[in-house]
Design a protein around this nucleic acid. Sequence first.
DNA 1: ATGTTTGCAAACCTTTTGCAAGCAC
DNA 2: GTGCTTGCAAAAGGTTTGCAAACAT
Lengths: 144, 144
Amino acid sequence: MGDCSKQAREMLANTGYKVTNQRARILEILLENTDKHMSAEEIYEIIKGEKGDIGLATIYRALELFEELDIIHKLNFGDGRSRYELKEEDHHHHHLICSKCNGVFEVAEDLLDQLEEKIEKQYQFKITGHHLKFYGICQNCVEG
Amino acid sequence: MGDCSKQAREMLANTGYKVTNQRARILEILLENTDKHMSAEEIYEIIKGEKGDIGLATIYRALELFEELDIIHKLNFGDGRSRYELKEEDHHHHHLICSKCNGVFEVAEDLLDQLEEKIEKQYQFKITGHHLKFYGICQNCVEG
DNA sequence: ATGTTTGCAAACCTTTTGCAAGCAC
DNA sequence: GTGCTTGCAAAAGGTTTGCAAACAT
């Protein structure tokens, strides 16, 4: 986990945008929760009650900025709210979404390279990214 | 395209749910637009001005029903509204989404079978479906 | 006749926006 | 000091809900 606060401030300093406490705290939370897919509301709930409150609008604006800066990814799991995850280089993965418990699990590997090549040629479409989600039943729910 | 109206009524009759003019008309529109990905609003706009108006709420309720009946798929292209497409058996495909014009194109083939098998074994996750979206720039927009 | 379905309007929920006050540089 | 950033509250936009009237069976 390490010193996420420091790491967050450094990342922001490199962007040229102002390093505000709010932005740093929001990014810090994302760094502390790389294993989750946080929504704006969830981040808000964590911050709520801390000394320096942050408005929900500010969180949305920060997340929008982080997305532009290519620091995070906006995800949609169909639950009516956007979720965000840090964009880690060389760590492409996909999501397994359980239809019973709605849990989200990650698949470490990315095996779409050949498929992308084929599509680029065949459809004349310059691919820059992809989202792959698998739906099904997770181990726990199968057993239950 | 054929007689979509008749087809729609037959499909509904087979479900046990009541065949109302509203449901039939909504399904008819979906059958007439298999090449598009319609939103509730778009369906509403088509119906608006016809003799029998349909409330937007009714459209949402019909789409929800059709989804439960496994007649349609709910899709999310990240444009802030849900989109729907008929679920055609033996016609798996993926979507190419252009970042410039926001157009959505379809990739006919489904080459994820091997990948799914591997994931099922490795992650003990019973896969029932998937969504694969590629982002990039379409032919038109590259040329422009 | 009866329970289902509809339309309307209001409610809901997430996200965005306007603007004056506050802060980083 | 200056312009970017924040917080608040209000607005926006898509979707859902309650309820009385209308409809399919």
